[in-house]
Amino acid sequence: MKQRTSRRPTVNLVINGNPQVLEVGVEVQPWHTLNYTLREVLSLKGTKVGCSHGGCGSCTVLREGKPILSCTTLTIECNGASIMTIEGLRDTSVMTAGGMRGTTTGNLHPLQQAFIDNYAFECGMCTSGMILSAEALLNSNPDPTEDDIKEALSGNLCRCGVYPNIVKAVHEAAKVKKND
C-alpha cells in the first residue's frame, strides 16, 4: 500500500482483497463511476461496459458480496467498501501446468469451470457480469431452483442468447460448491 502524505481526501477500497487508496482530484474525480475507476485507472479490464446506463448488466461487480452495476455507481460512494471483480474470483496462487488454454482446471472458480464445461458463453462480453451475479446468488442461496437462477440473472443481458446453458452452468457450479 502506498503511503500518502497529502491532505487531499481519499477513497479507500479493497479490491479483490488488495487495499487501494485513491486521491480525490488525482486518481479519482467526484464524477467518476466505479466502472471507469476499475477499467481506466486500475486497468482491471475484466469488468466490461455495455451501455453505461444500468441497462445490460455487463459491468456487474460485487460490493460486500452483493451485485452492483459499476456503471451507475460513483467511486466516491464506495469509500471503505470491499469490491470483487472477475479478476478476483480465480485462485491465482495455484498454478496448474500443462494442458491447453481453455481446458486448464485447478485454479478456476467452480462457476468459471462450469461456464466452460456448459458452453455458457459465445462472444463472452456478458460473462464477467453473469458469473459475478451468479456468485452472489450462490453465496446467499447455495441450492437455487431454476427460477431462482433466472430471477438472479434477469438483469444481465446476453445478446448472444445462450441463457439455457447459463442456467445449466449455475446449477452445476452450485452442486460443485456444495460438495467442496
Binding site: G46, I86, E87, R101, G102, T103, Y119, G124, T127
Partner: peptide, 19 residues
Amino acid sequence: IKRLDGFDKVTGTAKFMQD
C-alpha cells in the same frame, strides 16, 4: 470440444475492442 476461448472469457482476460 471445450472451447479454446473459454479460459480467457471466464477469467475476464479476453480482450475486446473496448480494452
